[in-house]
Design a protein around this nucleic acid. Structure first.
Lengths: 349, 349
DNA sequence: GTGTATATTTGACGCGTGTAAAGACACGTA
DNA sequence: TACGTGTCTTTACACGCGTCAAATATACAC
């Protein structure tokens, strides 16, 4: 048997040992850390590996090691560039720390989410990073993970898991920031929300209300009812504002959307009704979002929003998890890392 | 030691056997297929598992089984909703077949891509599904996978891997379709391309040229040079057309973009120059894309495009891979599955 | 009670590697 | 020559579970 390279294919370390004349334990040490074998053996092994094809069996190696070198990541869904950016920053950070990332996607299903958690337990990953689905999450599954592994919540924190380590955005700050900006530059905004299945959505909603009250304005929230059961964010924003605009409402208001994907739907609704959202015409329609979705600079008009520091969140989450894995003493107490948002003023508000 | 549920935590099958009074081999059979255990044992095990917490060790189970029940998937990058949709359909299909999907993302790096392939080999996944990076891919790594595992290429097929099983779109058909549509409804389009690092991009470019010639028009291609080294698709489309429009060129032309993300940048360029792409005004600017990116219905104007059947591609790729894994006889010959695109006429062209 | 067929358990071995203990070897030193 | 020192090999056991042959239990008919 041989691979595409024509080299003979070697299946086990034992065979490799026989093939290149180095004892198996020495090979074992070599594959764990080439620095732990003598120069002469190292040369012999290097030359040998050029003649044959061999990769250590992942399962056998991990089974006997205290650490598997893997961290598990669960994200709620894939079709959202926010989560792909988060995942990317996590993977890059983890790779930098020498870990292999195993990603599981909940695909909006609590069952799948729980199964992913079980998979991580059975694979005895060194730690787990979880961005939960929301209200429908299987909290028991998360608690089980948290009880048995180094565990960090990312992006969104369920109310009943307030005792767990968390890394995310400070929505009170970020939503407050954009709310304040809108109030300062024009009419106080209404808030285009979502059905309350998601903690961040609710946090932002509350942050909006608090800031509006603090500024002496009456908050106004729309869109908490699901118009379409199988809704997507953009479709939700479009449907809600399409309805409002059709009734002649909100056409000259400021509208703060719970996130940029909803805002993109809102922009579409505006276009459909011949409205041109923008900062320049005082008293006209303004639309702003939250997250700095990668497409914001390319929408028509470009979308004013507040950026989450996704990369910092990913890095911090990995750093925190690695600290817990390595059992650093300062990792005993609970930690909550919240990152500030940064206002991105563009055309739409 | 105990989990969050308070149940005693059991580490090995041996301990479990002692704890609930069923022999270990019987437990082993139970966890592989509960049907292979007698009623009485089954009841005893079920009751036992309600009292203690135990999950079989993933590594130990997989090591001794001929099949690991895992398939590896490599995608080039995450920050593209096309690939997330593809990945989603693959994961759903694989889950339906009872496989666990291990996803690795190349993050635009050939090194990472090659390492992912090695990871799959060492984990002895049952098969691998790979969407390659493009010209810069490490073909040797792919060949090594193909030589040692059931292997299927998805989405994009390097020229020098024409002998490998492939599932993707028929770009000759899809690009031809939208080209023909544009010619039929208005002026023959120019083609807004990308730097030629990607096989699909080149295939579409060629398909455009062929169809234009067949219809008796002169093809015109722009944008093959990278304006910004660290370019993203939308930024590329914006930069190229911004330059052209600034010089007064192409402002009343039909423009077919190599994909929807480039087209979104093109729409942005049009807006910046006060142009309103659309099908209705004959002789005016028209912009069309390719892929049916999920945001197409929400752009301003909504984007005319040709849809790839992503779900079918994912399903077919998994079906093909599973057939190879199971060693079905009809799986001996090479297979190439190409899916037709479907025209999605919207506002922009 | 015996005999037979079937279901289940038991015991033993194997998977590929980690790892610890003990011996083998070359090297430099006294 | 004898003696440490460090490196490497040998030997042996461990990890948790799959798997198979052999032994045992159970059920049933007679």
């Amino acid at each position: 048997m041989s691979g595409s390279t024509g080299k003979p294919l070697i299946g086990t370390m034992e065979e490799l040992s026989a093939a290149i004349g180095v004892s198996r334990p020495t090979l074992s040490r070599y594959f764990q850390d080439p620095g732990r074998v003598s120069r002469t053996s190292l040369e012999k092994i290097r030359r040998g590996l050029e003649r044959v094809e061999y990769t250590p069996n992942f399962f056998a190696t991990r089974m006997n090691r205290q650490s598997t070198g893997m961290i598990g990541v669960i994200i709620p869904y894939l079709n959202d560039l926010f989560f792909t950016r988060l995942l990317e920053s996590i993977e890059v950070a983890a790779m930098g720390e020498g870990y292999t990332v195993i990603t599981q996607c909940s695909h909006s299903s609590p069952d799948v989410e729980a199964r992913a958690a079980e998979t991580f337990l059975s694979m005895s990953v060194d730690g787990a990073l979880v961005a939960p689905l929301g209200n429908v999450s299987d909290f028991e599954a998360h608690e089980r993970l948290n009880a048995r592994l180094p565990f960090v919540l990312v992006d969104s924190r369920p109310r009943n898991m307030a005792h767990v380590d968390f890394v995310g955005s400070d929505h009170l700050q970020s939503t407050g920031l954009v709310t304040e900006y809108l109030c300062r530059k024009g009419a106080p905004p209404a808030f285009l929300a979502m059905p309350r299945v998601n903690f961040n959505a609710l946090e932002r909603e509350n942050a909006y209300v608090a800031r509006m009250r603090a500024l002496g304005h009456d908050p106004e929230i729309i869109g908490t009812e699901a118009i379409d059961a199988d809704w997507h964010f953009e479709a939700h924003g479009l449907a809600v504002l399409d309805r409002e605009f059709s009734r002649g409402r909100l056409t000259d208001r400021s509208i703060l959307c719970v996130n940029d994907r909803v805002a993109i739907g809102a922009l579409r609704a505006a276009a459909r009704h011949g409205l041109e959202p923008g900062a320049r015409r005082r008293g006209g329609l303004r639309i702003a979002g939250h997250d700095d979705y990668p497409l914001c600079p390319f929408t028509v008009p470009t979308l004013t929003t507040v950026a989450q520091d996704v990369e910092a969140i990913g890095r911090a989450a990995v750093a925190r998890l690695v600290a817990k894995i390595k059992g650093e003493t300062r990792a005993r107490a609970q930690s909550v890392d919240l990152f500030d948002g940064v206002l991105k003023v563009r055309e739409s508000a």
